[in-house]
Design a protein around this nucleic acid. Structure first.
Lengths: 279, 279
DNA sequence: ACAAAAGTGTTACAAGTACACCCATGT
DNA sequence: ACATGGGTGTACTTGTAACACTTTTGT
């Protein structure tokens, strides 16, 4: 009952898309010439359609019915930014009529990921992609600013867990590097001695046997993240490890995702209907 | 590129729905005649269409473009089970091609909620709704069994937080009641003395001044959940408090949701396309 | 020798655990 | 009086924080 006299349009479910918040460490404040404490940076893409045409938005894309949410997120990210995080974790799903000002209603499943410095290619800018420091973001499309805030909060809550910190620094690292990352992320000073002990006590770090000298003082032991087999994926949150060639599903000869994804290479189409959304 | 020769259908984004996992305390194992430790129960609704016709599924419904995700979840729940939780929290979003066996691809935004014993009307069964104990669930449609597992894990992680436990017992309670709930949920014994102190130390419980006698021994002090104004909503997770008459948006004369929702009263349509999905 | 960073020890305090104990109440 | 649950005390263990200290290296 009550079905005929309510406008059909209001009953329509919204469209779905995926967005990704990528976080990486980058140079510090310009006042120190980029030196000093590192900051968190994230890539945004320029929108190429209304609404918010020309504005900055999170990388994202449409959701394909034949792919898992993670795969969709990964492909959307790949096609817009060429980044290849090894780990994606679902952050939250945003929806509701208020967020799509001017566009069609849209539900965005948002993932977040951390990438090491190496993967960012020194923050080189692709055509429509630019990296911004977390504390100096431009005006952003839709509610993407709040989404970023959400992701940052999440990161700060969990940054002290070995699996998260280590993801920001790359596969091998010294304890001091981890420490500096934690301080950069939280903005709070952390006692180095106690931090060392906590990390080592976690049992998830393994000494590589190598030593590395960052300055010109005593070299530090190099570690890698190597959780005991039993406790892998034991975290309260459960992200998804992507295969090394996550763009293909176990077939190395697959065409690159950017061509199978069927999207032109314009980024930030997550909240407007892209060419693949035919209704 | 690569757009024309890929089937249009695969490019279509999936439909979206909302599902809700409701958890409430109910009678214990039948071997003890329902006495003994309480168990967690949850309501399921019988499906009235393919796939999984006649099977049990989580309450849910379509997502309306003109409502927030929470409101959609609330209305779907209300129209299928007549339950009115005061609090809903987003759990996770499930999607991917594997989960919709036989149906059209579907993304489900899943919420979870806890309701007090009072609200369950002694687990009375409505037409197509039945309550099941968490440890004796029937075969369930789609991946709903895993979704329930997800919700239970989440509950067990957080059950010791005052705001969660208190939601399972209703507005007023004794410390022993809280304690019993925690033991029922975790299955582990918890030291009562220490539990009392932890709860009181949280500062989120307020004595009502009343006393109540459960057995025929010394009466126990009655408490209510009353977090200090500053720390309300300070939890790492952030659910949504629904207004007391959450079905209406501040307008008491709104028609009941079941008629504005535009759905017939068949439950568990979240993963099949209901009458309101016209494409 | 000195500076700088790596790495270890020590102490103080907070938080959590186990368990013994007393108190209030109805039969 | 005594059984039963309500409520408190206490000793012990564990975790965390602060900070002094020793070691290794290059200049």
């Amino acid at each position: 009952m009550g079905y005929g006299n309510v406008s059909e349009r209001r009953m329509q479910p919204p469209q779905v898309g995926v967005s990704v918040v990528i976080l990486a460490l980058g140079p510090g404040a310009p006042s120190s010439g980029g030196a000093g404490r590192s900051r968190l940076w994230l890539p945004l893409v320029r929108r190429v359609r209304q609404p918010y045409l020309g504005g900055w938005a999170l990388p994202g894309g449409g959701l394909r019915a034949d792919l898992s949410l993670e795969r969709s997120a990964y492909l959307a990210l790949e096609s817009t930014t060429d980044l290849h995080p090894k780990y994606l974790e679902q952050l939250h799903t945003f929806g509701g009529p208020d967020r799509s000002r001017g566009g069609l209603p849209m539900v965005s499943v948002v993932y977040w990921a951390l990438v090491g410095r190496a993967e960012t290619r020194d923050f080189a800018e692709a055509d429509n992609v630019r990296w911004f420091p977390e504390d100096d973001l431009p005006a952003m499309a839709f509610d993407h600013r709040e989404i970023v805030g959400h992701a940052l909060r999440r990161l700060r809550e969990r940054i002290e867990y070995p699996d998260l910190v280590t993801r920001l620094v790359g596969p091998e690292f010294t304890l001091r590097q981890l420490h500096d990352v934690v301080e950069a992320v939280t903005g709070e000073p952390v006692d180095l001695a106690n931090f060392r002990r906590r990390m080592l006590a976690s049992g998830e770090l393994e000494e590589t046997g190598e030593k590395i000298r960052e300055g010109r003082q005593r070299p530090a032991a190099v570690y890698r993240y190597a959780p005991a087999a039993g406790e892998r994926g034991t975290r309260p949150w459960g992200g998804v490890m992507l295969p090394d060639d996550a763009g293909a599903s176990g077939n190395a000869t697959d065409a690159p995702a950017s061509s199978t994804f069927g999207m032109s290479d314009d980024g930030a189409m997550d909240d407007a209907l892209g060419p693949l959304t035919t209704i």
